[in-house]
């Protein structure tokens, strides 16, 4: 067997493996990032414009987001059945439950602090998952955490707009990038 043929076979294996990993990353991450990025942009910017309606608005948006996430997750898990997929799903459910507990224990909190705390806990999930699975998710988690802390402490008057544009924008942008650039 020729050396060149062997080299080509190994290149073929590497290219295929990379293509599969990119497809999995795209299909398992991008739809959720696009969905929640859009929800953050709508939620935070509308909260800035109509503060009185923020509470009911976020409840409605979170319900829409959860239902849409379950539908997207079901579609994906119907095509790729991985033992880790179910573990990841329950990890996020657990994190959401604990976020609720932390907010409950820490109450009463001003709305700004509640929002910061919730975002930071969710981004902790991004950072931890990013350490295990994909460095890009780690970076997204760290960037949004930094935006949350700096915006909440240094620019509280602009916090909602910062979270809409930089927080939601980072999620939406990352999701769209993966969706387009990692197309098989």
């Amino acid at each position: 067997m020729q050396t060149e043929e062997i080299r080509q076979a190994l290149v073929l294996v590497d290219q295929t493996s990379q293509k599969v990993r990119r497809a999995l990353l795209r299909d398992s991450f991008a739809p959720f990032a696009i969905l929640w990025g859009a929800i953050w942009i709508v939620g935070f910017s509308t909260s800035a414009l109509f503060p009185a309606a923020a509470g009911i608005l976020w409840i409605a948006l979170d319900i829409v987001g959860l239902v849409a996430s379950i539908i997207i997750g079901n579609q994906y898990s119907g095509r790729v059945l991985s033992p880790n997929g179910l573990r990841l799903f329950w990890s996020w459910i657990a994190l959401a439950g604990y976020a609720g507990l932390v907010l409950f224990v820490a109450r009463p909190l001003p709305p700004l602090r509640s929002s910061m705390l919730l975002v930071i806990i969710i981004m902790a999930g991004y950072v931890i998952q990013g350490i295990w699975l994909w460095r890009g998710q780690l970076i997204v988690g760290l960037v949004i955490t930094a935006v949350t802390l700096l915006g909440g402490w240094l620019l509280p008057d602009y916090y909602l707009w910062l979270m809409a544009l930089l927080g939601g924008g980072t999620l939406l942008g990352t999701g769209l990038y993966l969706w387009i650039a990692y197309r098989p």
């Binding site: 295929t16 599969v20 990993r21 999995l24 790729v80 059945l81 991985s82 033992p83 880790n84």
Partner: peptide, 9 residues
Amino acid sequence: ALGPGTEVE
């Protein structure tokens, strides 16, 4: 590349 125990459609 899918990993052990993973089924793909």
